[in-house]
Design a protein around this nucleic acid. Structure first.
Lengths: 202, 202
DNA sequence: AGAGATTTTACTATATTCGTATACATTATA
DNA sequence: TATAATGTATACGAATATAGTAAAATCTCT
């Protein structure tokens, strides 16, 4: 009787709904996208949609949570690898950049803009993400990889530098994109490396 | 009393409306974008909008016509330069590619999709564009730059090759993007160059 | 001050979207 | 085959959004 489904197999239709909705949301934002449109493109009927999600916002939350989850895993994964902290950071930045191309500020604003409900949700997410990153930094501090500064401050700086990387105009200055990234990365590092590990200090 | 405005100066607000609408339409398509949204982002009131355009579709047509106009000028401009036909073609392809990044198929489909009115309009545009390109080809044939083939056929091939260029997957095969373009271009040419001008013929 | 452009606010008719109810079709499996 | 589970088609009412208009207030020039 297949009973509980063993919690494993997620309905094909559900997956299709989620994936097409992800596409549409990241492209056009929450408000512009219609439940009916999602269903049409997913090749599912509206009834199926409401079988799996109570409403559009729930689907959206589901998707966002998935993204957070991915970020969580990624961060944990990176932290577990046995490489110098600096390389970990590099990997993290790389990941955030890839994410950033989808989750850019415009996209976020578009979602935050008109729907007040999303504001609170976004706050939630930010807080979660914060905590995660702060743990990451705290661990690194425990190992002496970075100076003892308020992790919250480091997070803020990190985010500001990410904004810098996503800045199209600045990017144009560099002929080589990789060089640009290295530049930011190295800047970030000579700011947070503990004194005893820094070679170029005046 | 500034009277007729001398037909020169287009109201700043109108220009802003047109430009923000162009942005929004190219990003999200006709249907997803709201008159109110355009006005808000353009910093204009709805009344101003309806002062200049009778409705959303009219604005859309205005924008599209502008693009056609640009294409017209560009083609004429390219045709007028005293360079080999092959280089003209290269320039034309370059231009179409730039345009293609905005006017991609997805965008077009999105507009054609739900609004039946746009279908007819798009037909109109296609016909105009066709005629233009066909003139271009006919002239070239008159000069002996290309073989005597039905211009309509050449247009069709040209468009197919453009689709090829915009194909992400194919693009990935080439490490150098310029090489890719050259490849397509050269393929196109050794297909249409008149026999006496071809060097590598079996 | 005075004319034209622009905004603000308020409003209506229309269209869209949401979410549900019902009856029907498909698939899988015991 | 019988029995569920899953999905579809269609239609529907209610809430909401949008288009487009009207009239009065405000702004911006000269």
């Amino acid at each position: 009787m297949m009973a509980q489904d063993f919690g494993k197999r997620i309905s094909k239709k559900k997956r299709q709904i989620v994936s097409t909705a992800t596409d549409l949301f990241t492209k056009h934002g929450l408000k512009r996208v219609t439940v009916e449109e999602i269903c049409q493109r997913a090749g599912a009927s509206k009834m199926t949609f409401y079988k799996y999600f109570p409403n559009k916002m729930a689907l959206f939350r589901h998707i966002m949570n998935g993204m957070i989850e991915d970020g969580y895993k990624k961060l944990y994964e990176i932290d577990a690898i046995d490489i110098p902290f600096r390389e970990k950071m590099q990997k993290l930045i790389q990941y955030k950049i890839e994410l950033g191309s989808k989750m850019n500020r415009e996209f976020i604003n578009e979602m935050l803009g008109p729907v007040p409900e999303t504001m609170d949700f976004w706050q939630e997410i930010q807080v979660k993400n914060c905590q995660l990153f702060i743990d990451f930094v705290t661990k690194a501090q425990g190992r002496g990889d970075i100076r003892k500064m308020r992790p919250e401050f480091i997070l803020a700086v990190f985010n500001k530098l990410l904004e810098l990387i996503l800045d199209e105009d600045l990017r144009k200055i560099y002929t080589d994109y990789a060089e640009f990234i290295r530049e930011v990365n190295s800047f970030f590092f000579f700011g947070i490396l503990p004194v005893e590990k820094q070679e170029h200090r005046e």
